[in-house]
Design a protein around this nucleic acid. Structure first.
Length: 300
DNA sequence: CAAATTTGACCAGC
DNA sequence: GCTGGTCAAATTTG
């Protein structure tokens, strides 16, 4: 297996990028005329770069002897669905308070697909997704949102992704892609890039895909109820498209095919992170992502 | 009115 | 039993 080599390469790339970005930041800060916007942007990139490095290293050398079984779990793809999931009303069934009509029967929990995770401030990609769930994660401050390909039923595309804010860097999102797209997205996106980018790294800045936003870019109102006295969020929410598009896909490295992104959570210092205190997090996408921003209070 | 999102219930793995 | 992932009814949005 040459995955170790590949991971080394990724780490090297990340570190080199971090170095370059830091140099840029240094130059920016030395110039009195420049505002702090670009500098903050660079800081986000740098942090993302280092986070990615750490993530890669985390998979490169399993720290504890834990989880040697994670990769080998082939199969189990078809969970036992034998009983047709028909727990109709034959007394047993599960409690089903309320008017849940249809059988909710068995479903397959995908166990091992190709997964890769990136951290980015960009939530969009060239695919269209539909949100199908959101969960609060145990040690995470922010809920995780679950997306499936819009063409899941029309074209049988099984790709999903999970999006969660990075605790350490609230500008960033940890985006885990699960499975490859089998759908034909050419009809919707000018960019005819199929999803073959697993296990590769997007360090090439000429990649510059402008993610075709299927978003409606609606402005948020509820976003403002977090105001900590400063109204900088408004400014940034006006600015975010620029931020988004200027952020090319530099810092997107990724580790592949491991378990899901637990390592990122492990990095977290569980302190309170001030929400929008620095004026970050101003960009809010459409509302499928929007609810990610709100730190969740466990109300179970 | 169709498509997308929200949200709580359901389900499987550990 | 807990937790994360998925389903699907209800609701919202375009």
């Amino acid at each position: 297996m040459d995955t170790n080599k590949a991971k080394k390469l990724k780490v090297m790339n990340q570190l080199v990028e971090g170095h370059e970005l830091t140099t840029q930041l240094q130059q920016l800060l030395s110039q009195p005329g420049s505002g702090l916007g670009p500098a903050e942007d660079l800081v986000a990139k740098i942090l993302g770069s280092f986070n990615n490095s750490i993530s890669i290293l985390d998979t490169f050398e399993p720290i504890s002897s834990s989880s040697s079984s994670l990769a080998a779990v082939e199969g189990s793809q078809n969970a036992s669905c034998d009983n047709d999931g028909k727990f109709e009303d034959s007394g047993d069934s599960r409690k089903r308070l309320g008017p849940v009509k249809g059988k909710r029967g068995c479903y397959k929990r995908k166990k091992r697909s190709e997964t890769w995770t990136k951290e980015s401030t960009i939530l969009e990609d060239e695919f269209s997704w539909r949100k199908y769930g959101q969960k609060e994660i145990l040690n995470a401050k922010f809920p995780r949102s679950y997306f499936r390909c819009t063409h899941k039923y029309t074209q049988g595309c099984k790709a999903t992704k999970q999006v969660q804010k990075v605790e350490l860097e609230p500008k960033m999102f940890s985006i885990t892609y699960i499975g490859n797209h089998t759908c034909n997205t050419n009809a919707e996106t000018p960019k005819s890039k199929t999803c073959d980018h697993h296990d590769e790294i997007f360090m090439d800045s000429e990649e510059h895909k402008s993610p075709s936003l299927t978003t409606s870019m609606k402005e948020e109102e509820e976003n403002h109820h977090h105001h900590n006295g400063s109204s900088t969020e408004n400014d940034l929410s006006l600015v975010w498209p620029d931020m988004i598009f200027e952020e090319d896909y530099h810092h997107q490295a990724i580790y592949v095919n491991g378990e899901t992104s637990t390592s990122i959570n492990d990095l977290g210092s569980p302190d309170h992170l001030v929400f929008g205190a620095g004026g970050d997090f101003g960009f809010s996408e459409n509302e499928q992502y929007f609810s990610i921003f709100s730190p969740c209070s466990n109300l179970s």
